[in-house]
């Protein structure tokens, strides 16, 4: 028989789960963001043929258990001849799920831009790309970033689900080590701390992103961090250039 092992012996194996967890988090987020944008735009479409499928996808992924979807992708799809690798299964299911939730964030952000802004831009004859990137998004994006940060951290914790389809992330390794040591307490305590630290780091990254977006959108950086009153007082400079407003002529 082999000599008894301690948690210490398994530490390198356990920490090896951090890159896996982060990989799944970011890949799934890379799926979720475009999916959210596509679904949100689809749902706002004036054409029923676009609006309904987008609504259907959102309700499908939001409305059924992510765990069941994951098992379905992993164990059932192969019976139909489609065998996706475990990582792809996990990333797609998590990404589509989170994308469905986030599409509502994107939609709310887009809806929050006063209708008059778009109408004015159209009336001024600004090209579509200019309208999107210079008029709508600078006003909508800063609103979307904080809830997006929430979802990023949710995704980090969400990834523990993929441990159930043989992906060796933090949770998977924790379970395995607990099982091997015959003791769950210490390893799950450590796992919680590691998730907490990762979430703190991601939260910090989101704050950096918030600042970057605010700067891109032409907002006063300090105003973003200031209380609401100050934020209202420091109204954002108009994103529409002076020539487009017809000023100075």
């Amino acid at each position: 028989m082999t000599p008894p092992k301690s948690l210490w012996d398994f530490l390198p194996f356990f920490l090896g789960g951090i890159p896996v967890t982060l990989e799944v988090t970011f890949l799934a987020m890379a799926v979720a963001v475009p999916v959210a944008v596509i679904l949100a735009i689809g749902r706002r479409s004036p054409h029923a043929l676009v609006r309904w499928p987008a609504g259907f996808v959102i309700e499908l992924f939001r409305g059924s258990s992510a765990l069941v979807q994951l098992f379905w992708a992993f164990y059932v799809l192969p019976l139909f001849g489609l065998t996706l690798p475990p990582l792809l299964c996990g990333v797609l299911v998590l990404g589509l799920n989170e994308g469905s939730y986030m599409s509502e964030i994107v939609r709310a952000g887009l809806d929050a831009v006063p209708k008059g802004q778009r109408e004015a831009a159209v009336a001024l004859g600004l090209p579509a790309r200019y309208r999107l990137f210079r008029i709508i998004l600078p006003q909508a994006l800063p609103l979307m970033v904080p809830p997006f940060g929430n979802e990023l951290i949710t995704m980090l914790k969400f990834t523990a689900l993929v441990s159930l389809v043989t992906i060796q992330d933090l949770s998977f390794r924790a379970t395995l080590i607990g099982d091997t040591l015959g003791e769950n307490g210490p390893i799950f305590g450590l796992t919680m701390v590691v998730y907490f630290i990762l979430a703190l780091i991601l939260g910090g990254l989101v704050r950096l992103l918030e600042r970057a977006v605010a700067r891109w959108a032409g907002r006063n950086v300090t105003a973003v961090a200031a209380p609401h009153g100050a934020m209202l007082a420091a109204a954002p400079p108009s994103p529409v250039p002076a020539w487009a407003l017809g000023g100075g002529r």
Binding site: V37, I38, I41, G42, V50, G81, L82, V122, A128, R129
Partner: peptide, 28 residues
Amino acid sequence: SEDWTRRRLVALGSAALITPTLLAPRLT
């Protein structure tokens, strides 16, 4: 021209959804 972005995105999205289905028989 207003629909340009939207149409593109929808086309891309549906392509992404349909492609795996087309690949399926080959994998089997």
